[in-house]
């Protein structure tokens, strides 16, 4: 049943003439799920989002959103979608309040208390003209209009760009609240850290193709740690080089530095044969994981080209 999925794409493909947008993207986002849609700039995230919203028409393949056809059912569908564009530009010169009143009226009426509650939460002054606002404040207006009508599906393109860290935390709390209320969230980002605390799953897109879809926890298991061990006496790097998951071993005197992928057990067992003075292990950085598994492993050239 398609209606179990908030977003369902099958072989979705978009070319702009000869230029590749996305190619054969098949993706399923369950109702009530938070999906982080990750990839470097230019990978096709915004193209995918615009196809889901019927701003673009697919070259081939199809998309179903909330069980509806993005083109045929656009009016009914957009009533249930909250959309935050990646490049925010607001039509007109009004104050944030008047602009939000327009969005509310256009969506068939939104309780004003809902708007003021969100504005308060994000510390947004509704009486100021949007044009005169900083990037961060404009982003807040964008978030308020996306969340204000409690849509079944939130499509957020780079939602935290321009927000200070405090507001990023508030935004993530809003996403968690949305999930608790049964809303589906589809948010794109080029920074993994941004979605790792809220997303259930992460879809990674590179060069217009879906590179992987993973649960966030399983990404963590693959984490790469950098480990530094201080021994009492100098050690032989060859001993450690051969251990499974251990690489980039360097030894200077009694200090050993290496990176470990996966479980730490083999390294610990080997280190225990010597007298250990100190050990430092950096937190698993999902950013590193993300890059190493999906960019570096299949050629760094791809990633740098896609980022252009």
């Amino acid at each position: 049943m398609t209606s179990d999925y908030a977003v369902l794409t099958e072989d979705l493909t978009k070319f702009y003439g000869q230029r590749r947008g996305i190619e054969s993207l098949t993706l399923r986002v369950g109702a009530g799920e938070v999906l982080g849609f990750l990839g470097p700039n230019g990978a096709g995230k915004t193209t995918t989002i615009r196809l889901l919203l019927d701003f673009l028409r697919p070259t081939s393949g199809s998309a179903t959103v909330l069980g509806l056809d993005p083109r045929r059912d656009k009016a009914a569908l957009h009533r249930q979608i909250g959309y935050l564009p990646g490049e925010l530009s607001f039509p007109g010169r009004e104050t944030a309040g008047d602009l939000l009143r327009f969005f509310g009226a256009a969506r068939g009426g939104v309780a004003w208390s809902q708007v003021t509650a969100l504005a308060e939460r994000l510390d947004l002054d509704l009486s100021r003209p949007v044009r005169t606002m900083s990037k961060g404040n404009k982003q807040k207006v964008g978030l308020v209009q996306a969340f204000m009508h409690r849509p079944a599906l939130l499509i957020l393109d780079e939602p935290t760009s321009g927000l200070d860290p405090l507001m990023q935390q508030e935004f993530l709390a809003m996403v968690r609240d949305a999930r608790d209320a049964g809303q589906t969230v589809f948010m794109s980002s080029h920074v993994l850290a941004e979605v790792q605390h809220t997303a259930d799953r992460v879809a990674i897109i590179r060069d217009g193709r879906l590179a992987a879809v993973e649960r966030v926890e399983s990404l963590g298991k693959r984490a790469i740690r950098s480990v530094e061990i201080h021994f009492n006496d100098p050690v032989d790097p060859a001993e450690f080089d051969v251990l499974p998951g251990v690489s980039e071993v360097t030894v200077s005197g009694p200090v050993l530095r290496c990176t470990v992928s996966g479980r730490l057990d083999p390294l610990i067992k080997m280190a225990a044969r010597h007298e250990v003075v100190d050990m430092l292990s950096a937190e698993p950085d999902l950013e590193e994981t993300f890059l190493s598994f999906y960019y570096h492993s299949e050629g760094a050239g791809d990633a740098s080209r896609a980022g252009a």
Partner: peptide, 20 residues
């Protein structure tokens, strides 16, 4: 104009068909 300055995205996200 809205298509060039980017304001179109939020206008077109209103629940209206393209023709409407």
């Amino acid at each position: 104009r809205p298509e060039e300055d980017g304001g179109m995205e939020l206008l077109l996200a209103n629940p209206l068909s393209r023709t409407a």
